[in-house]
Design a protein around this nucleic acid. Structure first.
Lengths: 348, 348
DNA sequence: GTGAAAGCGCTAACAA
DNA sequence: TTGTTAGCGCTTTCAC
């Protein structure tokens, strides 16, 4: 008789309905109920029906953890938090992580924070609670020290795209500074001096680094008065377009643009194309080698974001193997891909 | 003493190293080992160190299922299999699924099949094995009857984007036929008769439907001899570009194009832009309202792919609630978004 | 600070 | 076809 044990409701989880309950209700043994609900054969049709009916009536839901444990299987998952699934940059990254995860026979559980620190933290805690083996995160927090709590719990945390702040942890980032420098240098070499940088949120480490590289190159070239062509907060395409319009309306508008991310690159293209005919367009260099860059002849600072994902995953697996290793930061190279838009001379 | 129980290796899982083993090795109780490895406080520093060391030496890895079970938590996951994470169409869909999943407090585990039926099936079986509550799949199989085995196991399966074949199951698809028809009709109204359809793999149900709609409109308009402008297998951008080049090299090339998916639309744009100046370009209509369509002035058959994901997830959750419901197919509407490329008259 | 015992909800082996 | 008996590996009382 199991009935005596059933009145245990210390933890009022979503469901108290266990297999045992269903079995009693259907008047069969635990094992028979298990057979039915697990889809095993060798059950008399009417018995099956009876169990199925009671399960439905009681609202039975199998406890995956118990099932996995009893059958000796492992459910190894690695959690990933990105900003936004529809950003091709993150999508490619996720793809890289998935490849590596699959090789390690791990399941990838992906979620997006919408660049909101609170959401991110909720998701991160969720990953820990669900006992993910590792968490790979594109963090939107200005201070990542909270993550220490999770790390202490045994969760492996790897930061990707944006370096961890106020915490020691594995990370994979791009050489953003080189990217910013490369873009500026290239445009300078093509005769531009009024170069505008249209960047994302100022607090993003990636943006800070890109802008730093850009600034250095401009200063070293002896250009003065370029700061007034630097813009920030071009996070989405709509806002970026506004910003670009303002810049083009200046008395001495920029003859060249650097787009701090793929969103702002798209925005710059949009405005520039609708305002100037071919042959009179400002030069421009974008960030991230997205698929449409080719059609549009957009020169970009390119990098391998899929590889970035792979490396982050590999770092995570390495740490799972040996948690005592020292935190490692991998910096991935960037390169300039010429497609025409960055090689035009100044027109006005 | 637990030692007597340790020689149980019926199931040689990946790791035999349990907490108990670590505890023995470290000369502490099970509970103390648990405290350390779970990151709980109230453990003497040296005890902690000792446990940590032994855990490392033995290669201990916590069993997530056991941990979850003992603590009375539930880890409810819903699995999603898409073709390719970097296709913006799937990415938006995944986003929609994630939103719904989060509302239902479920974790999303995402993987991609690369449009390969074998990979897809491996992933699907994996989802069942990991005891996912539901599976939402963009299937690349020509026959989905195998999925019956999983359904019998109690897994809820929902097909999205492509209708299930040779099996009854919930599904959410677009009204692809209307899309094909709409595109053709629109171009016909603008005076085109030599309209080419550049489609994806012929076996894709979405392509069949789009082409069927296209065909109907062409036939009804009394156009003859349009079949020789229909192409298939334009699955990736490279192949699509080849196909478009061939079409443009015809003696009487098409004056308008319909791109069967976002890849082929990109390819058509690429070829058309590099061959003709503005004002002389063939008209064209793409499928899927991708982010770059705006800059390029691309008219498209648009739809809400995020909503498609949401609806698929909702269908899955509804079935989890009541598995006895009849299979339901939801068909989502499509619309034409005019941006210029589809409204040009024929030029040659 | 540490430990013993008692399960969590399920499945596996072996009977009947 | 059905049932009984043991656990799966961990966390949780509640003692010490």
């Amino acid at each position: 008789m199991w009935e005596s044990e059933i009145t245990d409701n210390r933890r009022m989880t979503h469901t108290n309905v266990t297999l045992a309950r269903v079995a009693i209700a259907a008047g069969v043994s635990l094992k028979t109920a298990s057979r039915v609900l697990a889809g095993e054969p060798h059950v008399a049709p009417q018995t099956r029906e009876r169990v199925l009916k009671e399960a439905r009536v009681l609202g039975y839901r199998r406890n995956a953890a118990a099932s996995l444990l009893a059958s000796g299987q492992q459910a190894d998952a690695i959690s990933v938090i990105i900003g936004d699934m529809t950003n091709p940059f993150y999508a490619a990254m996720a793809q890289g992580i998935e490849e590596s995860a699959r090789e390690h026979r791990m399941i990838l559980s992906l979620s997006s924070s919408g660049e909101d620190p609170d959401t991110e933290w909720e998701l991160a805690k969720g990953a820990a609670r669900q006992r993910s083996r590792a968490l790979i995160v594109v963090s939107s927090m200005e201070d990542n020290s909270q993550y220490l709590d999770l790390v202490r719990t045994g969760l492996t945390v790897v930061f990707v795209d944006r370096e961890p702040r106020a915490i020691q942890a594995d990370s994979v980032v791009l050489d953003n500074e080189a990217g910013g420098r490369l873009a500026a240098t290239h445009l300078l070499e093509h005769g531009h001096t009024r170069i505008s940088y249209v960047g994302d949120y100022e607090w993003l480490p990636t943006q800070q680094a890109r802008l730093a590289g850009f600034s250095d190159a401009m200063s070293e070239a002896g250009i003065s008065n370029w700061e007034h062509l630097v813009r920030k907060d071009a996070h989405d395409v709509a806002r970026a377009r506004e910003i670009v319009r303002e810049l083009l309306d200046l008395e001495a508008p920029p003859t060249a643009f650097v787009g701090g991310n793929n969103r702002s690159a798209l925005a710059i293209l949009h405005e520039v194309h609708s305002r100037y005919p071919v042959g009179r367009r400002p030069a421009m260099i974008g960030f991230d080698d997205v698929e449409w860059a080719g059609v549009l002849g957009l020169s970009v600072i390119s990098h391998d974001s899929r590889d970035m994902g792979r490396q982050a995953a590999d770092l995570a697996f390495a740490r799972i193997e040996d948690p005592s290793k020292e935190a490692k930061m991998i910096e991935l190279p960037v390169a300039l891909t010429e497609r025409g838009s960055g090689e035009r001379p100044p027109f006005s």
